[in-house]
Amino acid sequence: MKKDNDSVLYMHSPIIRIIIYGLLLLACLSFLFPLYVMIVTSFKTLEEIRKANMLALPENFTLMPWISAWQESCVGLRCKGLKDYFYNSIEIVVPGVVISTFLGACNGYVLTKWRFPGHNWVFGLLLFGCFIPFQAILIPAARTLGILAISNNPIGLILVHIAYGVGFTTLFFRNYYEVFPTELVQAATIEGAGFFQIFFKIMLPSSVPIIVVCFIWQFTNIWNDFIFGVSFTSGEGIPMTVALNNLANSSTGVKEYNVHMAAAIIAALPTLLLYILSGRYFVRGLMAGAVKG
């Protein structure tokens, strides 16, 4: 009912309003300027980059950096571009997101509508897992994946991402189902629906918003992950972020900034698109992760 931006309290004075708009414009510019530079640089030739101003639009517009980043650039000794690593990331992200979201939904359902003695302990233990620094589990995780023979393998990374994502997804669904009317579950129970029927026929169909939130959150986290990728994979098995880092920080050869920028944009594209397409849910995810346990 209340519109978002009609706060009662605001500064009326025209001079102050000009200053406010000025400051906001400045903020927008400084937030957009790196993105702008990345984009223009990715369409320039190396020569132009060396000669001309970073902010200038490309004079000799070229797609070569993009082509090179996608299929020719060298990551380590392998010069086949980033495309394989991009696929690696997708191969990890998709099952990781789907499975962890599904587990989160199940857990949230159990923790709100089918509480058992000690459910708070279980939730507390799951939730705390969200906040540990990954450094504290890195060595055992690497060893374990090695023992299970799934290190440098998508399955290993998927498992790890599920293990450290399930706390968040559970939190999302628990908070969502907490305010979901229990009367509906009771009514369904009286009509003879069982545990799974209620979950699949009543809870899940009305959980679309939180599924989207959870999906975006997990997608962003897993796609953007670096530390697990760099610790548990190598060679051809590395995900996109690691490949980008290796490409941009390789100490050999000339620094092809245009290729680096094109590569960075490619690496950023999936999450950026997701954000542009569904910013509202993205914000909700951030807030849910931030406020209240």
């Binding site: 906001l24 937030f31 953007n224 880092n245 920028m261 960075a264 690496a267 997701l274 993205f282």
Partner: peptide, 29 residues
Amino acid sequence: LDQRIRFEGFIRPILLYPMSLSFIVTGTA
């Protein structure tokens, strides 16, 4: 932004988009 800014819906996403990027991307840029 809470001062009845006309373009709020436009400005907010601009300020927030870096949060969707990987630190690796940000660092590279």
